[in-house]
Simulated scan of single mutants.
Amino acid sequence: MPISPYLKSLRAVVGPRLLLLPGVTAVVLDDAGRILLGQRADNGSWSLIAGVMDPGEQPAETVVREVYEETAVHVVPERVTSVLTQPPNTYPNGDRTEYVDITFRCRAIGGEARVNDDESLAVGWFAPDELPPLADLTRQRLEAALAPGDAAWFSTPAIRLD
């Protein structure tokens, strides 16, 4: 997976230590209600399209950029569907990350789905009842995005009254 110049500059200073990073995920639907997925080049699994924000970038701008960069599909973000912190991850090179992720439900408005960079092996549209195997966190994001209503899912904190 390519690393942004910003993240590369951070890694030059902090090395592989844990970085808390802002990220976005897109649940992209077409007019037929199909979901856009990418087969990841790093592990071969099918996943929603996601990426890390660049400095000065709004989350909705990031989701539009990432979907186009990875799939050549143009989207319009419609609403935030979940906000969560992913479990810590260690990459093969030893870099450790923990992502604070904002998931957007997006509508496809143009382009033809195809592999558009080196992050994916394949890209495709899937009916909700014909999805390939997906990680639990991906399924959680999908459920939140496909649920009726406009409320976003988030973990409810314990309330302390002391």
Rank of each mutant, 00 (worst) to 15 (best):
G15S: 11
D150W: 10
V27P: 09
E119F: 05
V75W: 01
P133I: 05
D150S: 12
D42I: 08
D31W: 02
R34M: 05
P2R: 13
T103E: 13
D118H: 12
C106P: 10
S120R: 12
V115K: 05
A122T: 03
L131P: 02
L10H: 06
L18A: 05
L18E: 13
L37F: 02
R114S: 12
V64A: 12
S4E: 09
A135T: 02
P55T: 04
A26H: 12
N116F: 14
Q39R: 15
P77V: 03
Y99V: 15
V75Q: 02
A12W: 08
H74V: 11
K8M: 11
A12K: 15
E61N: 07
S155V: 13
M53L: 15
A32L: 14
V80M: 14
R34S: 05
L134R: 02
S82T: 10
L131I: 04
R96E: 14
Q39A: 01
A72C: 06
F104H: 13
R141V: 00
R96V: 04
D95E: 14
E66H: 13
G56R: 00
A113D: 06
P157R: 12
L10W: 13
V13C: 07
R40F: 08
V24F: 14
V24I: 14
I102A: 13
M1Q: 12
D162F: 09
E112Y: 10
V100P: 00
G51K: 09
A60E: 15
V115E: 06
T85G: 12
V115P: 08
Y68F: 15
I49A: 03
